[in-house]
């Protein structure tokens, strides 16, 4: 196993995460979003497992298993259940200006790369690249959260953002396992809170379109 090949595979997997983030931004069907999110988590698990292999850090395998179990299996299944119960599984979301969102996403990706590469000059190549791509994934997750109106897609945006954080954390060596486990659990807690909120929103407003909440904001009058 040469170093170049190890780097290439890490590059492939991290680049794959950015690509799947774009797929998430592009999707407008609820089922498509959930499928893309599952893929996102699978690529994350593969990327983390590869990092564990090349860094010879066995605890990262645990992170990969957590990513696989929670992010790729439990959360998508739970989201599917929620979507079914809310009756929006066939809904097509009206995303405002796919083209504009994609352009913004490309700009954010370029920004992330231009910001991270110069400031991490002396670091290891794999870590630099993982940091650049994870920042891109985080920014794309944020972009998804602010461009979507459906609360479920916003949750998916949040979860994909968190995937980006894990990617960055595994690239930088020496992240303690206890931090990763606690992050994983806090995301799970956040997910439960989100789920409860979804049903509350739905109960009160008969929709999960968060525009309905705007009426109750003070500044709009």
């Amino acid at each position: 196993m040469t170093d170049a090949l190890a780097f290439d595979i890490a590059h492939l997997l991290a680049g794959g995460m950015v690509l799947v983030s774009f797929m998430l931004l592009y999707q407008d069907r609820m089922n498509g979003i959930l499928n893309a999110f599952t893929l996102h988590a699978l690529v994350l698990a593969a990327a983390v497992a590869w990092q564990a292999h090349i860094q010879s850090a066995p605890h990262l395998y645990l992170t990969a298993v957590i990513a696989l179990g929670f992010k790729a299996i439990v959360i998508p299944l739970a989201l599917r259940q929620i979507v079914q119960r809310l009756g929006i599984h066939r809904e097509i979301e009206k995303v405002v200006g796919v083209g504009l969102t994609m352009l913004a996403g490309l700009g954010l990706t370029a920004l992330a790369i231009l910001v991270v590469l110069p400031v991490t000059g002396g670091a290891d190549a794999v870590a630099r690249e993982d940091l650049a791509f994870s920042l891109a994934v985080v920014l794309l997750g944020l972009l998804m959260m602010i461009t979507r109106r459906n609360a479920v897609s916003q949750i998916v945006g949040f979860m994909s953002l968190e995937n980006g954080l894990i990617l960055g954390a595994t690239g930088a060596r020496g992240m303690p396992l206890v931090v990763e486990v606690s992050v994983a659990f806090s995301v799970l807690i956040a997910f439960i809170v989100f789920g409860v909120f979804l049903f509350r929103i739905r109960e009160r407003f008969d929709t999960v379109d968060v525009q309905a909440l705007d009426r109750f904001r003070g500044d709009r009058g």
Partner: peptide
């Protein structure tokens, strides 16, 4: 068709960016 080719444009741009990163190392 715009969305279809927008996808191609995005893939091309992403390819350039990723290559730029791996070359920047």
């Amino acid at each position: 068709v715009g969305e279809f080719l927008g996808g191609a444009l995005m893939l091309g741009f992403l390819g350039t960016l990723l290559l730029f990163v791996s070359r920047g190392m």
